[in-house]
Amino acid sequence: MPSHDASERGQTAWYLRHAWPIRLMHWINVLAFMLLLMSGLQIFNAYPALNWGKSSYTGRPPILQIGARMDAQGNPVGVTRIFGHEFNTTGVLGLSGRDGERVRRGFPAWITLPGQQWLAMGRRWHFFFAWVLVVNGLAYIAYTLASRHLTRDLMPTRSDWRSIGQSFKDHLLLRRAQGEADRRYNILQKLAYLSVIFALLPLLILMGWAMSPGLNALFPGWVDVFGGRQSARTIHFAVAWLLVGFAFIHLFEVVVSGFWNNLRSMVTGRYRVADEEDGHD
């Protein structure tokens, strides 16, 4: 795949880092995931609590609960209770919006889709882009297998595993790979991508299906493997935030290893390989 390019200055080499189907599917995924996250939080707000078990009324308190109440002075406060510990989250969780027009709601308007409380429309966005995510994901898996992108670029090699300690050090010191090594994904990068593609996203989708009363009837009882429908809802929520965590780390790495070079490679495909001597882009 790397097509060596004569460069405009000395040792600098350019190559096609990402084929167009990968670029296209990457951006579809970005769009779908953001819309799913925001519409998902809209749906969460209709019942801003998480339970563990088959139902929400098991006699045990919720794992997480977001709400609003009056404080000792009679002022409304937003509160978030996690595993029995209560936090004042006024302004963000439980009670948010501009001063004077604060509203009781789980997540604030700026992170939900639609902004206002509108469950029916949130569900429309969510289930439309859920199909987009699933179809895009299947196309991605098919492409990575057919083009051998998976085996060639993503599967860790034996030497990758041997370099794992060095890779940790490089990441902590924000050291970018040089020369030939910059043409390949490093081991931590490979593991992060593989766990998102083959663990987190499939689990997220499966837990979405586990919440469907229709799909529950496909093999009665299958949802209990994950602790029941309300546990599935909790896992769905937690995995979504793990993916947000991945996205932030991913963005951080994109910035520190040459923001424009990385962004260009995911838009036009062209990537400038770091010279052996010139360090950061």
């Binding site: 429309m121 429309r124 966005w125 289930f127 439309f128 859920a130 199909w131 469907s212 009363p213 229709g214 799909l215 529950n216 009837a217 496909l218 009665p220 009882g221 949802v223 209990d224």
Partner: peptide
């Protein structure tokens, strides 16, 4: 347009679930 996904979900579930498929 967003609502068109509803018909897709409906068709998919009807394809998977027979009249005999029982809720847990």
């Amino acid at each position: 347009l967003l609502g068109s996904a509803e018909r897709l979900s409906f068709a998919a579930q009807r394809l998977l679930l027979t009249r005999k498929a029982m809720a847990q």
